[in-house]
Write a protein that binds this DNA or RNA. Sequence first.
DNA 1: CAAAAAAAGGGGGATTTCCCCCTTTTTTTA
DNA 2: TAAAAAAAGGGGGAAATCCCCCTTTTTTTG
Lengths: 210, 210
Amino acid sequence: MNYSVVVVDDHFLLSQAIGGLVQKFDNFDVLYLCKNGKELLDKFEDPKNIPDLVLMDIKMPILNGIETAEKLKKDYPDVKVLALSIEEDEYTILKMLRAGAKGYLMKDTKKDILEKALLEVMLKGQYYTNNVSKILMESIEKNIDTEIKDKELEFIKLACTDMSYKEIANAMFCSYKTVEGYRDSLYKKLGIKNRIGLMLFAIQHNIFTP
Amino acid sequence: MNYSVVVVDDHFLLSQAIGGLVQKFDNFDVLYLCKNGKELLDKFEDPKNIPDLVLMDIKMPILNGIETAEKLKKDYPDVKVLALSIEEDEYTILKMLRAGAKGYLMKDTKKDILEKALLEVMLKGQYYTNNVSKILMESIEKNIDTEIKDKELEFIKLACTDMSYKEIANAMFCSYKTVEGYRDSLYKKLGIKNRIGLMLFAIQHNIFTP
DNA sequence: CAAAAAAAGGGGGATTTCCCCCTTTTTTTA
DNA sequence: TAAAAAAAGGGGGAAATCCCCCTTTTTTTG
């Protein structure tokens, strides 16, 4: 009996391609494809649509990968989730793993690595590439008390631009004072003292890639 | 008759190793090794010490590669200069080429590339690796009127640090107002409006590598 | 060598950033 | 559901940054 897999990705071409690959693997069958998390959860209403493993993008419209993974962890804890994304920053990857993903693959992963990852997740419960393991290790070493909120992450990315805080507030649809709040809280918890320090932090943690 | 080569580098181990490589090449002989530009120019007093080609580091004590190349261009225009350095920024490479170097090689260049470069410089007058050609092309496209001075370059590198301008002035042994002058002139000629913009520029042009 | 250009230094004001400490609203959690 | 925590917003002052315009000294160049 093969393991059943569902691919969730808003880029239909990509999910089709990946579905095609998975279908060819010996121990796996593709059950169906979805365009976002909402569609997936709707499908799950019918128990025969619940797969062994979900291969899911992070950035998706309506219900994104992290939110979907959290719901799956709560309501369908037996379904394994494997994240599949291009170039996310360290904190997003970390959040996806905290949300219950058993591993994280780059979209340009070679097909035998994909097969290996699928198998390991089904057999051993998880699969981490070198990169991801490194991020995990570092996050354990350094960031015990430094969890960065979504809005703060968004702010950091804009702060790596030559925009003033006033302009950033505009872009984030919030008040200037709120933006100052994000900045102050980040400066405090990251132990930095100015915007250049924030930018250096962002580069070092792949939040911003120049 | 083989071409004669002199290697100039303050790291004696390295210049010995490179000298050894060059000696083995079919068309080249090593005349002698030098530790800096001053030593080289002293040697040149005796005409039989003047080689066909000088393979020279940029960062050296007493007389550096750029200054030496300028003197050679003036007093010994027939001697070809090939720069040999690790990870310099775009503007330093450009300055070395303006000073008369016929090409620029990374220190970790493979030995057949080194041989190829030496031959091409002797036969065709120049050798540019892909990287260097790209920098040259870009400098022609964009930076016609933007030449960055030494002190400005030094300032940019420090501005990519979380130091305040006061601290930078201290580090550069000059007044705070002078540093402000460097900044203002850079902002004007690069068309940027704040320190983040300067940092982005520095990263894009390999002046600062995070 | 004289004129021109560049480097170094400065004054002063407008703006932005930094760093506290505070209130109200929303969200979490026990 | 009540208490606690977090998010959002704000006041205000000190410091840093930005942006002019100016003088003196040094260097370059015709």
